[in-house]
Structure formats: structure tokens, C-alpha cells
Design a protein around this nucleic acid. Structure first.
Lengths: 147, 147
DNA sequence: TTTTGCCGTCGATCTGATCCATGGCCGCAA
DNA sequence: TTGCGGCCATGGATCAGATCGACGGCAAAA
């Protein structure tokens, strides 16, 4: 990972479908040298894949909220049950195990407030041991997610 | 956006570099029909781009925390100053304007705890009007981010 | 029944990926 | 100084895939 690799990675993070020829041009390498580096970055796990970026609104995910969740039951069983429920809930896009008095921080993406309320009631409300919730509804992201 | 478009979008979200031929195979369309649909999804803004996915640890971003931030000064000027500071801070990967008593939720990605402390002190600590902070350090993501 | 919207197939063309061989440049160690 | 290893550039050959245009079929809507 030298400076050149850094430039390659930045370019590919910005546009993952750029051709190797074009990439080599921007980096200032020959296509063959550039390709060797990209392949090495993939092989070594620095680049783990390529994804299409989707428009949240078009996917019915325009409403974003973060939710902290505490469990009254701190057993491994209860945690696994909760994590499994989140893994099965399509509205939940991230489920982070965090420090502090709340055990989890969820990122919820749904179409609108009604869908968010439905998630809150039907999914979170249906779970046992969920004893504390704080919702942070996202009003907009000045720094749109750099990914 | 019918069912077929949904399948296309899911495949491309999983692997953004799949060839059109292969994509058409998986969807069950001819390459030409498939290409027509992909181009329409791009044109209409459902697919907004393609990105390489990077290994956080390899990029010095293995340590993740969420931070809620309140501003004592609620003026537009103060908000803009804060947002601009976050836009200029490479450690800050997301800056969400949220409801509630905290105005912002940040996602911070750094190499380790020391770097996090440095961010906290040198970046957040140097800003005016930042009067309340709560950190949620991510211990690992059971449901790794679905993107 | 006619129109409209998709779809599949075919062929032509162009770009790019990938592999290979060759040669230059530079720093390091014998 | 000399030889070696690591990298890079260039150019050729080959193959897969992207892209486009044209044509005909089929089914649902008008």
C-alpha cells in the first residue's frame, strides 16, 4: 500500500467501473502495471468487492433513522435472538453492538414515517427484553456518506 | 421498477462488475433486453453509480464510533461552521442532521482508539458551541452493513 | 382489431481485458 | 564496478464483452 495504491483505491472507490486503461491514465501508470496493482489489492483483501450504488428514495428507503436499543436480559441467548431478528428484518440495514448503556445501534431505512412506525411497533415491539429505545430520525446528511 | 428490475438491482448491488452477459443469465433475460433495463435504471437515477468496497482495516478505518453532537448555538451560521468542519475531517464519514436534543449524529472511522481520542480532542474539542457529546463505540457488526 | 411495449435473435463493430515478451531504470549488496 | 531483483513502459496477439441497429414475435391494452 504505497501512495500509488492509495490513488488507485480512491479512484475505484469513486467509480468502480472505470476501465483499467482509463484508471492507468488517471494514475499515471501503464495499463499492465496498473492491472497488476489492482489485482494485488483485490487478492490481498484491500478491495473486497464492487457494488452498484442505489438511490434510497427509488428503493423505498428514503426515510432513515438510527435507533439505540437496550436489552433488559443481558444473556448471550437474548442477544443472539435480537441479532437474529435484526438480520431477518429488511428495514434494518446495520446492527452495531456498541459500548455504553445501550447495547445496539441500528440503522433503519424505510419508505416513510408510517413504515418506520410499523417497524417500531411490529418488529421491535414484538421482541422480548427490549427495554429502552432512542430514535434519531435523520433529517438530511450534509456530508453524504463517503463510501 | 418491476420485479425484474428488482432482481437486476439486487445482483448489481451484490456485484457491480458482473458482465452484462452474466447478469442477463442470472436474471433470465437476453443480454440486449438486460442491457436496455440497466441503462434505463442508470438513466432514471435508480442506480447512481458503482464503487469499489474497501477493507476498513486495510484503510486505517477499523475503529468505528458513532457520536451525537449538540450545539449550544443554534444559529444557521454555527450549524454551517460545524458541517463544514465535518466535511473537512477525513475521520468523519457520515454527518447526519437528526431530530431530538442532539443536532448531529456522526460516524467516525479511524485506525484505533488513540486516533479516535485525537479526533475527539483535536477536531471536536477545537470547535466552538459543541456542548454535548455521546460516543457509541462499535464493538463489531453482527449484521454487517448491507449495501 | 390495431397499437403499444417488451422481448429474443442476429450481425457488425469497437473497446477493453489479459497474457506475453522485451527492454529500461534504479537501488542494493557482493 | 558488476550483477541481480523489483518495477515500470511498450507493443503485439487474442478473446470476451459492450453496444448498437434492425427485424420479427407475442401479449396486453385500447
Amino acid at each position: 500500500m504505497d501512495q500509488i495504491d492509495g490513488k488507485i483505491v480512491r479512484e475505484l472507490a469513486r467509480d468502480g467501473r472505470i476501465s483499467n486503461t482509463e484508471l492507468a491514465d488517471r494514475i499515471g501508470l501503464s495499463p499492465s502495471a496498473c492491472l497488476r496493482r489492482v489485482q494485488e489489492l483485490e487478492r490481498s483483501g484491500v478491495i473486497t468487492g464492487y457494488r452498484a450504488v442505489l438511490n434510497p428514495a427509488a428503493m423505498g428507503r428514503g426515510f432513515v433513522a438510527y435507533v439505540t436499543v437496550g436489552l433488559s436480559d443481558h444473556s448471550k441467548r437474548a442477544q443472539q435472538a435480537f441479532e437474529q431478528a435484526m438480520a431477518g428484518a429488511p428495514q434494518c440495514r446495520e446492527c452495531h453492538n456498541i459500548t455504553g448503556t445501550r447495547e445496539y445501534l441500528l440503522r433503519i431505512e424505510v419508505a416513510d414515517l408510517a413504515a418506520y412506525k410499523a417497524f417500531h411497533t411490529d418488529v421491535l415491539g414484538a421482541l422480548d427484553h427490549v427495554n429502552a429505545l432512542t430514535s434519531y430520525i435523520v433529517m438530511g446528511s450534509p456530508k453524504d456518506e463517503r463510501r
